[in-house]
Simulated assay, not measured.
Amino acid sequence: MNPASGGPCQGIRNSIPALQELGVTTEVVCLDPTDAAFLGSDAFKITALGPVKTPYGYTAALKPWLEQHLGDYDYAIIHGLWLYTSYGTYRTWKQLKGAGKPVPKFFVMPHGMLDPYFQKAPERRFKALRNRVFWQLLEKHVVNGVDGVLFTCEQELLLARTTFSGYHPKAELNVGYGIQEPPQKTTIHQQAFLEQCPQAAAQPYWLFLSRVHQKKGVDLLIQAYRSHYKQNPQIPILVIAGPGMDTAYGNGLRKLAEGLPIYFPGMLQGDAKWGALYGADWFILPSHQENFGIAVVEALACHTPVAISKPVNIWREISDARAGMVFADDLEGVTSGLEHLLVMEDRLKQEYAHNARELYQTRYRVAEAAAYLKQVLQQHE
């Protein structure tokens, strides 16, 4: 549940308060260390059973906890695959069920981890091989053995069918996804952002806000930005915000951005994050794979139009609503996408911004997503 680990943790944090409003009490069990700094800052119960001892995330504490508590719940959801939380939880649930013990209805929510990208990306050859082995030995039994697989959007559901042989879940359920209403825009948000990125104080900026990782295509964004900056130094500055700048990939991005008005304020949270989203001319995400894109929807909710690549799985919804621009996830596509932003008339940009907020309100509000999730789960009792 470390906030720096990406979208699934934030998605859980978004949905639990909305489920609480519907009378659903949720407990999160994770394998983070029991002394993790972020524990205790959430308004719902998190039980940490870590630390784990291997890259697979094994801990002997999970099985006895499940044996003692799993029967207390009506529904259980595994978030993510490929770690011990997945097969370890499924195996214990199956054992309890076989012994005639009370067990909840059981689902898995892969959060894009069944996307074929992860098996095809050249830099993931070893991990792809590992996943094929894990699929045959473990995860295939989880996916096919639980009561259903939950997806955040239709594109994720369709892609999951193409990745591994032997994929035969009992039910495929597109439950959607949503985020909480952002706070009303105030000068406090702007000031908090500018404290971390003062360069954006007096000029327009484009914003990348996500985990800094090769999958996100940030290198393509910088290269495309450089080509336009050479022709027009008056273009908006580029803010690249997110955790991961202390990695080899992050250090490479700094070198790639040398001599350009590109700034790296690090991970933005709270008021600073909302200030960045509200103030951006465009939110840009050239990702090679994005199951849903919580930050994309947060930008929509802040009246900020988005420019995203097609591997962001909600690209069709955004394109159909005219809430943003869509481009290919290669250098030519990103370069062309930025060019469209530069030549766009203010009137059209304002239309995109209006449509962005409309799309959020009609499709991605967390209250509606939580209500639908509850309805779908209850239908499978």
Score class of each variant (00 low, 15 high):
W274Q: 07
V218F: 04
T152P: 01
G145R: 03
A356G: 06
L157D: 09
A276W: 06
F193W: 13
T247S: 15
I179F: 00
A248F: 09
Q269H: 05
A48G: 11
L150R: 06
H69F: 06
Y372S: 06
Y84S: 09
V376Q: 15
Y229F: 13
G266N: 09
A201N: 15
S86G: 14
L62F: 02
E298D: 09
N131V: 03
Q203L: 12
P204K: 10
Q223K: 14
G293H: 09
K170D: 12
Y278G: 01
Q184V: 02
Q191F: 07
G7A: 09
W282F: 15
Q20V: 10
Q378P: 04
A248H: 12
A248P: 02
G279H: 02
L19Y: 04
L348A: 12
L31A: 11
E181A: 15
Y364G: 04
A280Y: 00
H69K: 09
G71N: 14
I262C: 00
H79K: 03
W65T: 03
P17H: 08
V149R: 06
P204C: 03
A171T: 07
E358T: 13
E368F: 01
I188A: 15
C302W: 03
V133P: 01
D42K: 03
N355E: 08
M325D: 05
T335Q: 10
E381A: 07
Q196S: 08
A128I: 00
D42H: 05
V108C: 12
F126M: 08
D330H: 14
G176M: 08
G266T: 06
K105I: 01
L359F: 07
H303W: 07
E381P: 00
A257K: 02
I318K: 03
Q234W: 06
Y90P: 06
G148R: 01
L150D: 04
M113C: 01
K349R: 15
Q136V: 05
T54E: 13
V52I: 15
T54N: 13
A128Q: 04
T304I: 07
A369Y: 00
L253I: 05
G57P: 11
T186L: 06
